Simulated scan of single mutants.
Amino acid sequence: MIIATGEHGDRDESLLGKRLTVALMWLFGVVLIAQFTATVTSSLTVQQMQSTIRGPDDLPGKAIITTPGSIAEAWLRERGLPYRTITSADEGLRLLRSGEAQAAVYEAPSLRYWSRVFGPDEVTVVGPVFRPEKYGLAVAPGGPLRKQINGALLELFAEGRYEEISRRWFSDVQ
């Protein structure tokens, strides 16, 4: 009954001691309740933020967006998954925010770039790369830009800047 009334039967103890004990017990109780509430709230928030999509097997039944003419569109079509095409990253982000789309399937470097630019709270890259592809630059054979592009790429690789750029702009790690 100390916490409820401050009485514990010992009438010889000073009134100040009893009051301090009761105040400390109340403070301790409030802190425990606040800690419990914060733990439950953060746990529920994290669960709500986690995507139900972890990879390609989770896509059926979801509202999917992609870009027309992309490798991703061909991949979705091959599997018979319905999708909606978008014309820009901003349109895709708007559809994801509004809930009209639940997943964006697109080339991994572009999605990683979206995640980097829009932030992990807006775009999170999940799952494996479905179908790895190589990218290249097309120039006319013997054209003047060919040697310049090749030289610049070789220099980036030799100095380690290519990996730095790739990690900075296309990495899953923020």
Rank of each mutant, 00 (worst) to 15 (best):
E133R: 07
R97F: 04
V125R: 08
S110K: 09
A38H: 07
T124K: 09
L59P: 07
P120Q: 13
Y113T: 11
L137M: 06
L95A: 02
E122I: 10
M49P: 02
P132W: 09
A101R: 04
S110Q: 02
G55S: 07
A74H: 08
F130G: 00
A108W: 03
T87P: 05
D57H: 05
L96Q: 01
L95Q: 04
L111M: 11
A89D: 11
Q47E: 05
A101Y: 04
T37F: 15
S70A: 15
T66I: 09
I71V: 12
G61L: 08
V105A: 01
R54D: 00
L32F: 00
G69C: 02
V123I: 15
V40K: 12
D57Y: 11
F130E: 06
A103E: 00
I53A: 10
P60E: 11
D90E: 12
A72W: 05
E133L: 14
I65H: 07
K134D: 03
A104M: 03
R84N: 11
A103F: 12
T39F: 09
Y113F: 15
Q35S: 15
A89S: 11
V30Q: 01
T52R: 09
A103W: 12
I65K: 09
L95Y: 03
G80Y: 08
A34F: 13
A138E: 11
R131Q: 09
V117R: 09
M49G: 04
F130S: 03
V125D: 07
T45E: 10
T45Q: 13
Q50H: 13
E78P: 01
A74E: 08
I71Y: 13
D58N: 11
G119H: 07
R131P: 08
G55C: 02
V30L: 08
G55I: 05
R94N: 09
G61A: 10
L95G: 06
L137F: 06
F36S: 01
L44R: 10
E78H: 14
R79I: 00
L96H: 08
L95N: 04
E73R: 15
I64Y: 06
E133A: 13
S110C: 01
T85C: 10
G55L: 10
T39R: 03
D58Q: 12
A138N: 14
T52Y: 01
V40M: 11
W114E: 02
Y106L: 11
L137H: 09
A34W: 06
V129N: 10
L44M: 04
G69S: 04
L95P: 04
L96M: 14
